[in-house]
């Protein structure tokens, strides 16, 4: 099956935040009490209850101010560090390529939150007992709230009034995105680019940007942490090998020693 994706065209976004509301509404997330600190940007950060949030940035000088909007949510990596380190299989790949999540399986360990290169998974765990769970965007593939398997676009895409968010086959969206980037370049945005096409195996949320990812507060070269690979693919298999060899060695050792010492005891008896 062809992978699906969400395309976010930052140049078409007006930051109405309809996507934020639709996300909360569909996924039954609570509103968070916040304080106004002089910006329309709200709530202050992603959380257990806020899976999608628009970030506002003011860029430029000399009266040439640009107001840039960044969509902050799960990037749905093809090579997802969170899936790699999740011990219980609560995080898993949806057949369409999204990083889905079965909350009832979460142990609350939080490894995902510490290994995600985009700092997306959020915990509500108690610091002392460790009890709690993680939450994040599942691209509307959460069990019971699954729009994707029912042929619907994610709630954020459905509600977007300007066409900044589109949903479809990932290949087609890449073609659309590239064309749009070309157009932006012609218009003079020389740093325009399509973000997410190749990083971390290719993300399932693609960004059309009129400037470098870092200007939008996006990680330029997100990677699955080296530690994750060393830990999961080297140390753990080595651990199994060590345990197996030690167990087998001990079994052999005890058996041989038993035979030898019994033989010795028998000889001593006969000697007497």
């Amino acid at each position: 099956m062809a992978d699906k994706a969400i395309l976010f065209d930052a140049t078409k976004c007006t930051a109405c935040r309809g996507c934020q509301v639709a996300c909360k509404s569909w996924n039954e997330r609570q509103a968070v009490d916040t304080k106004c600190d002089g910006t329309l940007e709200n709530p202050p950060d992603l959380s257990n209850q806020t899976w999608l949030k628009m970030e506002f940035r003011e860029e430029g000088n000399n009266g040439d101010l640009r107001w840039l909007f960044t969509r902050r949510s799960c990037m749905h990596c093809t090579e997802a560090a969170c899936v790699k380190v999740c011990p219980t299989g609560a995080l898993f790949y949806h057949p369409d390529g999204f990083v889905s999540y079965a909350k009832e399986k979460c142990s609350g360990c939080g490894y995902c939150s510490q290994f995600c290169p985009f700092n997306v998974p959020r915990l509500d765990t108690n610091r002392v007992t460790g009890k709690g769970t993680m939450d994040k965007c599942t691209a509307c593939t959460t069990g019971g709230f699954n729009r994707i398997d029912n042929g619907l676009p994610p709630a954020c895409v459905k509600t977007c009034p300007t066409g900044a968010l589109t949903y479809g086959d990932r290949d087609e969206l890449i073609t659309t995105g590239r064309a749009r980037v070309q157009q932006l370049m012609v218009q003079g945005h020389t740093n325009a680019n399509l973000y997410g096409e190749n990083v971390v195996g290719g993300t399932h949320v693609l960004y059309v940007l009129e400037d470098s990812p870092s200007v939008y507060g996006l990680v330029e070269n997100p990677e699955v942490p080296v530690v994750a690979t060393a830990w999961q693919d080297i140390v753990k298999p080595a651990g199994y090998a060590v345990a197996g060899l030690v167990a087998a060695g001990l079994l052999l050792n005890v058996m041989v020693a038993r035979i030898n010492l019994l033989r010795k005891a028998k000889k001593e008896k006969e000697g007497k």
Binding site: P87, T88, G89, E104, S107, T133
Partner: peptide, 10 residues
């Protein structure tokens, strides 16, 4: 991993 679900083991 399923034995760790819910976090009691932690």
């Amino acid at each position: 991993g399923s034995a760790a679900e819910g976090g009691a083991s932690r």
